[in-house]
Design a protein around this nucleic acid. Structure first.
Lengths: 201, 201
DNA sequence: CTTTCACTTGACACCGTGTCAATTGACATG
DNA sequence: CATGTCAATTGACACGGTGTCAAGTGAAAG
């Protein structure tokens, strides 16, 4: 029956999610996932052709459950270039920890797996589009730094908001999530915004 | 004879270096390295116990040949907080492309290999020390932004200068090396320096 | 002439992914 | 009740890459 089918599928996705969350994307094997889902290793392959497809599906599954598209879309509705930039940083920057485990697993596969590479790049291009929109909004109301080309501003914002930077600031530097957001906002404000548009910080 | 011994050892290191440089740290196997060095795969293990030890040794070897310690030390001698910050960004930022291949290979092993993880972290702590010194210098001559704690300034500079950020800006964003340096300097200046100390940009 | 030592050859164990074939057991339909 | 379908199981196996082991080669040094 297809509802059984669906149920097993989401049991697998949930198992993957949970395991990746627990050990932050470290060495989760197909057999671990199967065990966690309470099925045989081979059964996993009945639903997902390869490990990388499973990880990709888990990413989409999480995006869906967490409603990241809506959250990002919402941030776009904020009026005023500066506030909108902040809203975007909040939306994406606070999403990262929620998907860090799966992101790490996918990042690790990028090197060797074609499909994982494409899926991750896709994901990141979506974030970049958000950056473009935020930078354009700032540019339109004159709050973007005068001498800064839009392309370069986008590059900077996009790079600031990378998962790797979140990882470094929180895991290596020991910053709390709130401090991380603070750090990114400060850097974005001072680097990207015109002095007159910049809130004190 | 021990000079043969040494010669073979450096043939291996050179082979590793060359291969990692060519394919930017992608899937270089022990057998590839052996072939490139003109010896058998097993002979490599006579000189290096594991793949990760070989990569680590290659890193040190490169650091040595390229004289990165001297380059970083030299940047410390630049007088004036702002110029010194720039000198440090030049020194490290221009070194990254020279070691990108090996860095990538090591980064990929970090996830699964204890020794690689330690070696890489060590390396990055050395860079962090350079960041601390640069930030302190700026702080001492009053060019550091007034409201910015030294620790946070260090976190930001260190994160800006990560290999991952170089990778993203040059490989993903398509910036040239010169543009990359420009981007990092701009971001560092505007984020870390006091408005009055900041050169126009 | 013999010892030593770097290196070679070839076999093998281990791990994790992915494949295949035969089997089981539940449920649906004639 | 008999039959077919379908998800899932079990167990075996191939592959690729790392690392190990044992026996053998060949050249230089005493």
């Amino acid at each position: 029956m297809s509802s059984d089918n669906l149920e097993t599928r989401s049991r697998i996705l949930n198992a993957t999610w949970k395991l990746l969350e627990v050990d932050q994307g470290h060495g989760v094997r197909m057999s671990d996932i199967a065990k966690q889902a309470g099925i045989s290793r081979q059964a996993v392959y009945l639903h997902f052709p390869t490990r990388s497809e499973l990880l990709i599906a888990t990413t989409r599954y999480l995006d869906d459950i967490k409603g990241i598209d809506e959250r990002l879309a919402l941030s776009r509705e904020t009026a005023g270039g500066v506030d909108r930039l902040d809203a975007f940083i909040d939306a994406w920057g606070n999403y990262i920890p929620e998907i860090y485990g799966i992101a790490r697993a996918l990042l690790a596969m990028k090197d060797t797996d074609q499909a994982a590479d494409l899926a991750w790049n896709d994901r990141m291009q979506a974030v970049r589009h958000g950056c473009v929109a935020a930078i354009n909004a700032a540019n339109n109301d004159g709050s973007l730094a005068r001498d800064l080309p839009v392309k370069q501003a986008t590059d900077i914002l996009w790079t600031l908001l990378s998962v790797r930077n979140w990882e470094q600031l929180t895991q290596e530097c020991g910053q709390s999530q709130a401090q991380y957001i603070e750090t990114i906002k400060r850097t974005a404000h001072r680097t990207l915004l015109d002095d007159r548009a910049r809130p004190a910080s």
